[in-house]
């Protein structure tokens, strides 16, 4: 049993899941906004990164890890609400290119401002989870306390979001506003408020993701820490379907596992190439995502 758990394929699956839950969280964060506003938030990673700096460096530099994390998530939610009210509001009803360009510009502003204030050098966060793998019968299991913490946190966040959407009145309103805005207004749903709440939830998820990414002992927090993660998260979301939260999660985790096998058996450098290839092929075959039902394009 121990030999099996520490074997190469099982190790790859474990490492893959650890990476994959992060991609899945980014994908979830993107889907939350896409569903309601048809907007792909290219600044998602940068907003989350800023939230982490605010929590761990600006407001609570000497505080306990968990306190700083809560501050970061609150800051993330606030940044989301401000972005929606201050910037995105101006872009509703414009050609679909405009929001893309605006969010890319916002990404550039956020990363530059973060680097100007906090410099580009990496900072470690005071996570108390060891990055050293557990041992099983003298061999390493490809799972460390830190990885377990990442996976558990991701599952908690996903469960929390799913709970809101499935079991609460707010979730019903959020879904209705995304699916049928005009009908929802006629039934008394304040659709504009729902859009803001969608951004708050999405940015909250983003902030947790960025804290997890930056807590990694080997990378730490930098202004561009989320760039690569965002790219993989987008690829996961696009493969799974930007309309489908479940699809985004499934494809995030799957992508993590597949890429880990590529990294282990082929070459670590080829990972992003393979991801790009997967994206191109899957978009060619199913442009609306693997996990979405076929919908007729509206003419």
């Amino acid at each position: 049993m121990n030999a099996f758990l520490t074997s190469r394929p099982v190790s790859d699956v474990l490492t893959g899941v650890t990476n994959g839950v992060i991609y899945a969280l980014v994908a979830l964060s993107l889907v939350l906004i896409w569903r309601s506003a048809r907007l792909l938030n290219f600044a998602q990673g940068a907003m989350a990164m800023i939230a982490t700096y605010v929590g761990f460096v600006a407001i609570a530099p000497h505080a306990n890890y968990w306190v700083a994390m809560v501050v970061s998530v609150v800051a993330g939610c606030l940044i989301g609400a401000l972005t929606e009210r201050g910037l995105v509001r101006w872009l509703y009803g414009k050609p679909e290119l405009n929001p893309v360009v605006a969010m890319v510009g916002f990404l550039l502003v956020l990363e530059s401002v973060a680097a100007a204030i906090w410099s580009t050098s990496s900072r470690g966060l005071p996570s108390s989870f060891s990055p050293i793998d557990w041992q099983l019968g003298g061999r390493p299991l490809a799972l460390s306390p830190f990885a377990a913490y990442e996976i558990v946190t991701a599952l908690v966040v996903m469960g929390f979001i799913a709970g809101i959407f499935r079991f609460t009145k707010l979730g019903l309103r959020l879904r209705a506003a995304a699916l049928a805005p005009e009908v929802s207004r006629l039934l008394g749903v304040r659709v504009n408020r729902m859009l803001t709440i969608g951004w708050i939830l999405s940015s909250g998820v983003g902030a947790v993701t960025a804290v997890l990414v930056a807590s990694n002992y080997f990378t730490g927090l930098t202004p561009t820490a989320m760039d690569g993660v965002f790219a993989f998260g987008f690829i996961a979301a696009a493969i799974g379907g930007l309309d489908s939260p479940g699809g985004a999660l499934a494809s995030g985790v799957t992508l993590g596992i597949v890429l880990q096998f590529v990294s282990d058996y082929v070459n670590a450098n080829d990972v992003i190439l393979v991801a790009l290839g997967l994206l191109i092929v899957s978009l060619m075959v199913r442009p609306n995502g693997v996990f979405t039902r076929d919908a007729q394009r509206r003419v």
Partner: peptide, 15 residues
Amino acid sequence: RGPYLAGMTLAFAVA
């Protein structure tokens, strides 16, 4: 259409 393609080119730029 637009946003998907933009995301794909972003992935290419990052990669």
